[in-house]
């Protein structure tokens, strides 16, 4: 088992640097090219949104950024680490120490309290119980749900569940937060609350965020919007231009 210390991705100017990344599923005539050469950098503390029609490669992009998948060709540097050279377990350790995930479907453990849900990533880090509790409470406070810590996920509304999920993602103080359609299952009011929360975390805690969305309103919260079409970056908008 590789020790966490051997994956040193503690600092660099860019959090993420993709160079010529392709991802092909299958081979030969039936091969499907999900990404066809993507170059992208995400700076420390930056908030980017990834948009595009379905089949444009958004999910593949998120999987690669989240180190759940590796490029078929090209390089992915996470800070100073060449992710494509890491095996499954080393990528798991990278995720454990530097990444946070927020999903469209929340993915909380249903019959488990909010506090225990938030503690989960720290459990895998082997943090002592008291430290876990304190960090989980702090994270729940940051998302405004400290009062709900003993409620199980099933007892919370959709918006609250997503906020617990965000607390779970930030409890490890990740270098990059990956959000896959975080507002996809929420109404517009709940959605803007979530987006404001993400923006606040981005500004105040300096957590870099990469978010996939197909709602322009949500993308507008980001510093930069990357438009994917057919596995290529078609357009990049800066916020200044967007507004």
């Amino acid at each position: 088992m590789p020790s966490p210390a051997r994956i040193d991705a503690s600092s660099a100017a860019h959090v993420v640097q993709l160079v010529g990344v392709t991802r092909t599923y299958g081979s030969g005539a039936s091969a499907f090219h999900a990404l066809r050469g993507v170059d992208l950098t995400i700076d420390e503390g930056e908030f980017i949104a990834i948009m595009g029609p379905s089949g444009s490669g958004k999910s593949t992009m998120m999987n690669i950024l989240g180190c759940l998948d590796v490029p078929t060709s090209g390089t992915y540097r996470f800070r100073d680490v060449r992710v494509e050279t890491l095996d499954r377990n080393r990528r798991a350790l990278l995720r454990r120490h530097f990444l946070g995930f927020v999903f469209q479907g929340f993915n909380l453990l249903a019959r488990t309290s909010a506090l225990e849900n938030v503690e989960l990533p720290l459990l895998y880090r082997g943090e002592p119980r008291e430290k876990r509790r304190a960090a989980a409470r702090a994270a729940l406070e940051a998302v405004g749900l400290l009062a709900w810590q003993q409620h199980t996920a099933a007892e919370l509304s959709g918006g609250q569940q997503q906020r617990v999920a965000i607390a779970r993602a930030i409890v490890t103080r990740p270098a990059l937060l990956l959000a896959d359609e975080p507002t996809g299952n929420l109404d517009s009011e709940r959605s803007s609350e979530i987006m404001q929360l993400l923006t606040t975390l981005n500004r105040e805690q300096g957590i870099s965020i990469a978010m996939v969305t197909h709602e322009p309103d949500m993308a507008d919260y980001a510093d930069r919007i990357v438009h994917l079409v057919d596995g290529r970056i078609a357009d990049v908008q800066r916020r200044a231009e967007a507004s």
């Binding site: 088992m1 798991a92 990278l94 454990r96 120490h97 895998y124």
Partner: peptide, 11 residues
């Protein structure tokens, strides 16, 4: 899936 995503190792 979630556990693996947040960094649980296979073992």
């Amino acid at each position: 899936g979630l556990r693996l995503a947040i960094g649980a190792l296979e073992h």
